[in-house]
Every structure is written in C-alpha cells, then in structure tokens.
Amino acid sequence: MNGPQAHWLEDGRRLHLNHGPIDLIIEAFGDASECRAAYGQAVARFQTILSELVEELPELRRPASLRPHAFAGPTARRMEAAVNPLAEQFITPMAAVAGSVADEMLGALLAGRRLDRAYVNNGGDSAIHLGNGRSMTLAIAGTGHGLADRITIRAEDGISGVATSGWRGRSFSLGIADAVT
C-alpha cells in the first residue's frame, strides 16, 4: 500500500492529498504566508489520519450505541458523535467517515492560522471555513446539469459543511435520487 501522497494540482492553488480511500482537495485563501503554513499543517496531519482510522476500524463498523465507545482518535470520535443521534436505528460510525475526515483536516488547516476562507473536499463531503463577511460558491455535482448548479454560502449562514449524496455515489442514501445536498 502506498503511503500518504501530497501534490499541487495543475492550477497551483489547490492541494491534493491521497491515501487509500481518502482523496482530498484543499484550498486556503488569505495571506500567502498564512496559507503556506496552513497547507503544511494539513500535510502533517494527513500523515496519520488513515492509520488511526484503520486501528479502530472493527469498532467503527459496529452499530452506533447510546453508550459511547472509547475511541482513541479524534476523527473516530467525530464519526461517533455524528451518528449518535440515530443510534436507536441501525447505523455505524462509518456513515460519517468522509465528512469527519474533512472536518478533522479543516481543523488541522486552521489551527493557529488566520485564513479568510478554506475548504476541504473529501469526494463531495466538504468542510468549509468562512471568515466574517466572506462567502463561497460551490458547484453541486450529480444533478444532471454537469457542474452548472451552484450554491453560495455566506459566513452568516452558519454552515460549515456540505455533502452531496446520490444513487451513483458511495455516500449513505435511504432512497434513489440523482443528488441530494
């Protein structure tokens, strides 16, 4: 198995991090030195995120419980917290893996940094940071219109993540839809 990979996309603005099933596109906006430091922090955090999840994988695949597990890793704890409200039904923390990885990586990107905006896209599950008065326009894939469909999120909306699921994707879906965001 190849280890964590990090490289810049052709546009020179977006960082691509890949390791096994984790495939991230990251972009930070703001002062150039702050962005450089943030990208370095993200690359450093990415080195262990998959191995941490693999260590706890058997427990992460078990049904969620109203009694919390004692997960060691912060991403596993995020996953559990995301599914606990649904623990009376059958769901495992794995239902929240993509968004939790995106959230963990955004946290690493932002730690001690002053960025205007940033995002971590993990295959359609995206974590978003918007500074005061900032906004971000996102393309919504899978709607049948290519990437022509867009939404704009403003800092005052209080939205820090977006996920799109559909019948062709790998995300958890309870029905058949081209895309639900």
Rank of each mutant, 00 (worst) to 15 (best):
Gly166Pro: 14
Val120Asn: 00
Ala72Phe: 04
Asn121Ile: 00
Leu60Arg: 00
Gly3Ser: 14
Glu34Trp: 05
Ala82Ile: 02
Val54Lys: 09
Ser165His: 12
Glu156Ala: 12
Arg150Trp: 08
Met1Leu: 07
His69Glu: 10
Ala102Thr: 00
Glu59Thr: 10
Ala111Lys: 14
Leu130Asp: 06
Ile128Glu: 04
Arg13Lys: 11
Ala95Ile: 04
Trp167Arg: 11
Gly133Asp: 15
Thr137Phe: 05
Met79Glu: 02
Ser171Lys: 11
Pro21Asn: 10
Ala87Cys: 04
Gly169Glu: 11
Ala127Leu: 06
Pro58Leu: 01
Gly144Pro: 07
Gln89Trp: 08
Leu115Thr: 10
Gly133Gln: 06
Ala102Glu: 01
Ser100Thr: 00
Ala44Leu: 13
His129Gln: 07
Ala118Asp: 08
Arg13Gln: 15
Gln89Leu: 15
Gly20Thr: 09
Asp157Val: 07
Gly123Thr: 10
Val43Glu: 08
Glu56Ile: 08
Arg45Ser: 07
Ala37Val: 05
Pro74Met: 01
Phe71Thr: 03
Ala37Arg: 07
Gly123His: 05
Ile176Asp: 07
Asn121Trp: 00
Ser160His: 11
Leu9His: 09
Ile91Met: 03
Ala81Cys: 10
Leu24Tyr: 00
His69Asp: 13
Arg113Gly: 15
Thr143Lys: 12
Gly107Pro: 06
Gln41Arg: 13
Leu50Cys: 04
Thr164Lys: 15
Ala42Phe: 06
Ala141Trp: 07
Ala87Arg: 04
Trp167Pro: 14
Gln5His: 09
Leu109Gln: 07
Gly142Ser: 13
Glu59Leu: 14
Ala81Asp: 07
Ala95Phe: 06
Gly133Ile: 02
Gln47Asn: 12
Gly175Tyr: 12
Leu138Arg: 03
Leu17Ala: 04
Phe90Cys: 10
Arg61Gly: 14
Phe90Ile: 07
Ala98Glu: 01
Asp125Phe: 00
Gly73Leu: 00
Pro93Thr: 01
Glu88Ile: 13
Ile128Ser: 02
His145Ser: 13
Ala87Gly: 03
Ala96Gly: 05
Glu156Thr: 10
Pro4Phe: 06
Thr181Trp: 14
Glu55Pro: 01
Ala108Pro: 05
Asp178Leu: 14
Gly107Asn: 12
Ile26Thr: 02
Asp116Arg: 15
His7Ser: 12
Leu50Gln: 14
Arg36Tyr: 10
Ala70Tyr: 01
Ile140Pro: 12
Leu86Gly: 00
Gly124Ser: 11
Asp149Asn: 09
Pro74Glu: 15
Leu86Ser: 05
Arg14Val: 09
Glu156Arg: 10
Ala163Leu: 15
Arg77His: 02
Glu34Lys: 06
Ile26Phe: 01
Leu115Gly: 10
Ser171Asn: 08
Arg67Ile: 12
Pro21Leu: 02
Ala98Lys: 01
His69Ser: 12
Pro58Glu: 02
Phe46Pro: 01
Ile26Ala: 02
Leu53His: 00
Gly124Pro: 07
Leu57Phe: 12
Pro74Gln: 13
Asp178His: 08
Asn132Thr: 14
Leu130Ile: 03
Val54Ile: 15
Leu109Met: 15
Asn84Phe: 13
Ser135Met: 04
Cys35Glu: 09
Arg36Asp: 11
Arg168Val: 09
